[in-house]
């Protein structure tokens, strides 16, 4: 159990009142080192992968509208390429299509709230942006790649 009973209840309440359609969390992990080592040593290829996976599995288990798919960064090359994944742990939030939403790292603290918010928006299949912003964004013809760097608080 990653969440306490109270946290579970709070998340359940938030999700059950806000989720609309289904969302898939496409999660990327790594359980083997990327390079072959000449000697057998204890290596952790990804410090927070297990913890992140446990948390996401428990989270997606709270609502039947949430699904999780787990892929390996080294073994599942086709999925890594499909989602343009640059490292682990990482996840994509996918609705009836891939919206280009990715999170890299363990979503803790404020970033956990941002993850819940992302799940809710994808589930509703629309953002909460103003009409004028949405119109301006819809007109964009060129690729835009936004990278936001954060630290957990």
């Amino acid at each position: 159990m990653v969440f306490t009973e109270d946290q579970r209840r709070e998340i359940d309440q938030l999700l059950s009142t806000n989720l609309d359609q289904s969302v898939t969390v496409v999660y990327f992990t790594q359980d083997e080192p990327s390079i072959e080592l000449p000697v057998s040593v204890e290596v952790t290829p990804c410090e927070y992968c297990k913890e992140t996976e446990d948390m996401l599995k428990e989270l997606t288990g709270i609502s039947d509208k949430l699904n999780i798919e787990v892929y390996d960064f080294v073994k599942d090359k086709d999925k890594v390429e499909q989602y343009g994944i640059e490292g682990v742990p990482s996840l994509a939030l996918v609705g009836d299509k891939d919206y280009g939403i990715r999170y890299y790292g363990i979503p803790s603290g404020y970033e956990f709230s941002a993850l819940l918010d992302g799940l809710i928006n994808v589930s509703k299949r629309h953002s909460k942006l103003s009409d004028s912003t949405r119109k301006a964004l819809a007109d964009i013809q060129e690729p835009v790649h936004i990278r936001v760097f954060v630290t957990p608080t």
Binding site: Y99, G100, S127, T133, A138, R147, V150
Partner: peptide, 28 residues
């Protein structure tokens, strides 16, 4: 950024936990 990505397929939004991705943090 996530909400912006939802409005246009050409927009991709990635959030990185900076301390777990020091190489990228340094690059940018």
């Amino acid at each position: 950024a996530y909400q912006m990505a939802m409005e246009n397929d050409k927009i991709k939004a990635e959030v990185f936990e900076a301390s777990e991705f020091p190489d990228l943090s340094m690059r940018y």
